[in-house]
Write a protein that binds this DNA or RNA. Sequence first.
RNA 1: GGGCCUGUAGCUCAGUCAGGUAGAGCGUCGGGCUUUUAACCCGAUGGUCGCGGGUUCGAACCCCGUCGGGCCCGCCA
Length: 530
Amino acid sequence: MHWSDVVAQRLSERGSKHIVSTGITPSGEFHIGHLREILTGDMISKAARKAGLDAEFVFIVDSADPLRKVYAFLDDSYSKYIGHQLKKIPPPDANGCPDMQRFAMGVSYADHFLEPFKKALEQIDVHPRFIDNFDAYASGQFAETSQIACNNADKIREIIERVSGRELSPDWFPWNPIDSNGSIDGIRVTGWDNPIVSWIDSEGNEGQSDVTKGEGKLPWRIDWPAKWAWIGVTMEPFGKDHGAAGGSYDTGKEIVVLFAQQAPVDLTYEWISLRGQGAMSSSSGNTIGPLEALSLVPPEILRYLVASTKPNKAIEFDTGMGLVNLADEFERTTSRDFSIELEKEGLSRRQLVAIEDAKTALELSLISPREETSSVTFRHLAMLAQTKSKDEDVWKSLGIDGSIPQSMVDRLNRMRTWVHSNHFPEELRIAILEQPSSEAMAQMSEENVRLLPELIKSLRLSNWEAASIQTSISSTAKTLDLSPRHAYRALYLCLMGTERGPRLPPILPELDQETILNLLDACLQIKQES
RNA sequence: GGGCCUGUAGCUCAGUCAGGUAGAGCGUCGGGCUUUUAACCCGAUGGUCGCGGGUUCGAACCCCGUCGGGCCCGCCA
């Protein structure tokens, strides 16, 4: 059974109405790691609906969280905003400086980072109900839970200290008021008289905060279960950081009982890292944003990556050859006929499970029905994108005429972007040698050598366009009673230094005939000398 | 110190919850393909399941130990 169906089954054991929740703090650039959170939630919701449950998918934007520190991409002038809520501070401009102009137009720090992510979600076909946490506080959604938390400060303290094993300071209180400057740092609660919290800030200013009006926020470990309570969350996937023993899920599970609610079904997922570069980290700039990823990879494939990997498995996102293999695997999967495979007799349990999982992973990945014409492998398209500068030549080569499906246009555009990026693997890059490679020459077989002079002759006479070159190559081979295979191998060794290569006939016309012939002559000379 | 995840074919992984003669894809090798030659089709190759014990008629799977990798326990998906 696919992992999403396993979760759906757990949900069905608890009831028929569900709210699957995810949440992210918009403290910096979003990256593909965040996509796992949201895709996991999306897929669980879909599986739940498939199982006949009533499931809603929500995405909480933690815009009430404070700025923790001046991140590497921010100007030092942000230091004055540390401790201020992300919804209440200006967005950074291109230099990382506070952009007061946009801020005046209503764009907050949180909005700045959230907007591109929302666009990525559109592309990847995820449509959650967005909940802005700051607004939720302001509109009183947290009023009841905040009051309960403050009334039960001792119980909550006991839970956190016991479960997480950390000691809370004597003046700890389950409410972070906002001080006279707008910060929730360095402030001390001095009294609680429902619904008013009295406080004194680091500068000695005193004030009062009404917990029912969002004049502050609950600390994270309480904020989370409070959200479960007021939204009615019954399922939430979260990163392994929250899932550790004594982590926020463990404390939340007990705290939520005070709010007369049951903790949601949980699912801990592993992180996504960049291949060879370790974990995704905004501060080191070691990230790939969802939009950047989507400029290279079709959304279906990003979905497939998450759908086909069990949540507890770490994903290494590889923008090079790994991507090619993933994309080609996806392509093969789309062309499988699962109904036939499943009817086959004598399938072992394992085989059956593997087929079902692949089928479900594919269903969860598809955004729109695939058109027949789109079954071109990544490799093949990579080659076409490199050898044909005009789109129409690509369509011609693929045998698509008439109207070109939009999905194909998108794929080709992405491929061109990828080819021109530094992510594109050298292995797939088409490069003609400038000098004969002695290493490759040593690999020339007797047939290859025999063919070479004839090939040169024939190519010199050809019209230097695809069809003519094709004929030259195969007829030369036939004349010598050899398979065209040998002719191609000879050419690949001479021109590219490899035993195999992409289809030559469409590529050669893009190159200068004399240059190619000179190179071949040089190769021939080497073989004749030896 | 406490805890979580992970180690299976050259590579990426499935199989571990419900123990029953090691699986898939990629790669590699061989063949086919008179022309989508990095495509496609057919075939083959390939693993003492990290290591050591235990339970069992039988262990990749359960139990104990051990080694290696990643991570969490202040914030981070």
